[in-house]
């Protein structure tokens, strides 16, 4: 198992290199000139050219790219064009905020969605199933910036219970986590339901019942555990998404997370911040996926055995 983890970690290196190349290339294709972002608008042509030269922007693409990669290898991801802050430190400063939001949203969604998914599967084709699926449809369809604003109107402006945005404590986390979590809960509910429906039809479930196991034991011990693989996959994928793609919710709630950082940096053509953040997001996603794989092994001993054989 440990060898498998190490192998996966080593495989991350070419993935990161390829990602950095793609991002660097994509940023170069977007046109525009970073110097225009950095200098005041009325800077002279000479000033612009001097800065371009100083930053190496006149060098060929691959020279610029290799200089960037060299910097990364030496632990230097560069400085933001806009804030002049270190890219790595800025990203790491935002990471705890995103982890807090993503983690809370995920916990909230799992608490709601797995019981709801099981409940709807056990009551397939009944009104309970329909009600659960309407909730899931609502959650999936609702744009989270709209949902966020509605929650702010209700809980913040009308009831005055929670702050409308910003950060600073648990109270500030409730509304953004609810906004992101509802969307996640809907997806996980659907996955749980369909996975449970598959498992409930299996012969071993009938056998378990025939052996006199309690309904609770049949569902949770024999059913849920076997249904967990697709659920863990969905949770892992959604967590990756939340960690890197909650820009809209973060904007509505002024939550200073990674999504907002990347979106804002793209708008300002802050190339070092965009490239560095996406590379770090890529590493983050690779780690989350690795964690999901490890959880697979604990859910299903057959997978663990497979990892051990492959080494």
């Amino acid at each position: 198992m440990i060898r498998y983890i190490l192998k996966r970690l080593v495989l991350m290196i070419p993935t990161i290199l390829l990602t950095s190349l793609l991002i660097f290339w994509a940023m170069s294709l977007t046109g525009g000139d970073p110097v225009m972002t950095i200098l005041p608008e009325n800077a002279t042509v000479e000033q612009q050219e001097a800065l371009r030269e100083e930053m190496g922007l006149n060098d060929p693409f691959f020279v610029q790219y290799f200089r960037y990669v060299k910097g990364i290898v030496q632990g230097d991801m560069g400085e933001s064009y806009v804030t002049r802050l270190d890219v790595f430190q800025t990203f790491m400063g935002r990471l705890p905020m995103t982890l807090a939001l993503g983690g809370t949203a995920l916990i909230f969604s799992v608490i709601i969605s797995i019981p709801l998914g099981i409940w709807t599967a056990l009551n397939q084709n009944s009104w309970k199933d329909t009600a659960g699926m309407i909730f899931a449809l609502f959650g999936v369809s609702m744009p989270n910036f709209w949902l966020g604003l509605m929650l702010v109107l209700l809980f913040s402006l009308t009831l005055g219970l929670l702050p409308s945005g910003g950060s600073g404590g648990v109270r500030y986390l409730v509304l953004p986590a609810l906004t992101v979590g509802l969307g996640l809960a809907a997806l996980i509910t659907r996955t749980t339901r369909s996975s449970m429906l598959d498992v409930l039809r299996q012969d071993y479930m009938t056998t378990a019942k025939a052996k006199g196991a309690s309904r609770r034991r049949v569902i949770y011990r024999h059913g849920l555990r076997n249904a967990m693989i697709p659920i863990v996959t969905a949770v892992g994928m959604q967590f990756s998404y939340v960690m890197t793609g909650s820009a809209l919710a973060e904007k509505v709630f002024s939550w200073p997370g990674i999504g907002l950082l990347v979106a804002d940096s793209i708008t300002k053509r802050d190339t070092p911040m965009v490239t560095g953040s996406i590379i770090l997001c890529c590493i983050l996603m690779a780690i989350i996926n690795l964690m999901v794989d490890i959880i697979y092994a604990y859910c299903d001993p057959r997978i663990k055995a497979q990892y051990s054989r492959k080494g």
């Binding site: 702010v152 409308s164 945005g165 904007k251 002024s254 907002l260």
Partner: peptide, 13 residues
Amino acid sequence: ILEAASRVIALQN
């Protein structure tokens, strides 16, 4: 508070 509507609500709140 980047989102204008949120900024307005924050003021009213």
